[in-house]
């Protein structure tokens, strides 16, 4: 008797929920590679806000860095009847089967942060940072900082070089360093992406090369770590620090003058732009397939300007 009631209730609930999908309200799913990195939370925030603005529902999945889980998520989303997907893929190489599947299901998909495998065309849009150009710009700026401080020698705290974006940053950076006449004397790669590791590495970097005058930080924690080390050693201002990504922590350091410039990775912006593109695809408006955004630089002196505030709004949610 009791069992029957429960079954009936469950059936009713299922019917109701499927009915809600049958309505005309569109849903966008955001599939993050993992949600323990704030960057992917911020992309999600952008997707969510833009979806609200466009009158769409929002659902969120996390692939826990597993391509298989990512595929499962996509299937689940499609089965649940979502209209479009914005994805931060686990890796570029994990995307071909995913795109084949979504193309068959005719669900538009936009990439944020990390693009699809090169050579593929069956996706709606790819909104990424232009790592190569950003690498060039950051290296040029870092080199200037070093020269102002009387040396051509610079060091780098890099992302693991097995990552595609890290390779592109480095390629651009090396070219720019060469062009500007700077010496990249040492590069250390992170493994844990933590501030404490960056502190240790920055210390080791300066111990091995005491004549370095500027540090290129390829990820946010690198900037924080390098700033910490420079401060401890009493070298404030004597060693220039630049950093890519940007967060409340590094912005605070930028305001203090402990960091000279941040190249902002527009996480929220990528979510917003990606959502706009899939919406366009759904409504028949024109789409831009490849949007490679050069990361905007904000320097210490301009951090409170309206332009800077506009940039930062596209980086992380205001609550941060």
């Amino acid at each position: 008797m009791k069992m029957k009631t429960i079954l009936l209730a469950a059936l009713a609930a299922a019917a109701l929920s499927s009915a809600s999908y049958a309505e005309d309200k569109k849903t966008v799913a955001y599939i993050a590679p993992s949600l323990d990195i704030s960057y992917w939370q911020w992309v999600g925030y952008g997707v969510k806000e833009k979806a609200k603005e466009l009158g769409m529902d929002y659902v969120e999945y996390t692939s826990e860095n597993s391509p298989a889980k990512q595929m499962d998520n996509a299937r689940t989303a499609v089965t649940k009847g979502v209209s479009a997907i914005v994805i931060g893929p686990v890796s570029s190489t994990s995307t071909p089967p995913l795109l084949d599947y979504l193309a068959k299901q005719k669900v538009p998909i936009a990439f944020a942060g990390i693009g699809p495998q090169p050579g593929l065309t069956n996706y709606t849009s790819s909104v990424t940072a232009n790592n190569y150009e950003t690498g060039k710009a950051q290296a040029k700026f870092t080199c200037e900082l070093a020269k102002e401080r009387g040396s051509k020698k610079v060091g780098m705290l890099s992302l693991p070089q097995d990552r595609e974006n890290a390779q592109k940053y480095l390629k651009g950076a090396k070219e720019a360093f060469a062009a500007a006449g700077c010496d990249l004397v040492q590069m250390l790669e992170t493994r844990g992406l933590t501030i404490s590791e960056a502190v240790t590495q920055a210390n080791d970097l300066l111990t091995a090369n005491p004549d370095i005058k500027a540090i290129y930080g390829m990820y946010d924690e690198a900037g924080t770590g390098a700033a910490k080390v420079v401060e401890t050693r009493g070298l404030n201002g004597k060693i220039g620090i630049t950093v890519a990504d940007g967060s409340p922590t590094t912005i605070a350091l930028l305001k203090k003058g402990a960091i000279q410039g941040i190249f902002f990775q527009e996480a929220v912006g990528q979510g917003i732009d990606g959502t706009q593109q899939v919406y366009n695809a759904l409504t028949g408006a024109p789409v831009t397939q490849d949007m490679a955004l050069v990361m905007p630089l904000v320097t210490a002196d301009k951090v409170d300007s309206p332009e800077a505030k506009k940039v930062i709004a596209r980086v992380f949610p205001p609550s941060n």
Binding site: D36, R191, G192, T194, I195, S196, E197, V199, T224, T249
Partner: peptide, 11 residues
């Protein structure tokens, strides 16, 4: 480091 991170102890 005057900063707390959720991944600090992972490794």
């Amino acid at each position: 480091i005057l900063n707390a991170e959720a991944t600090a102890g992972a490794s």
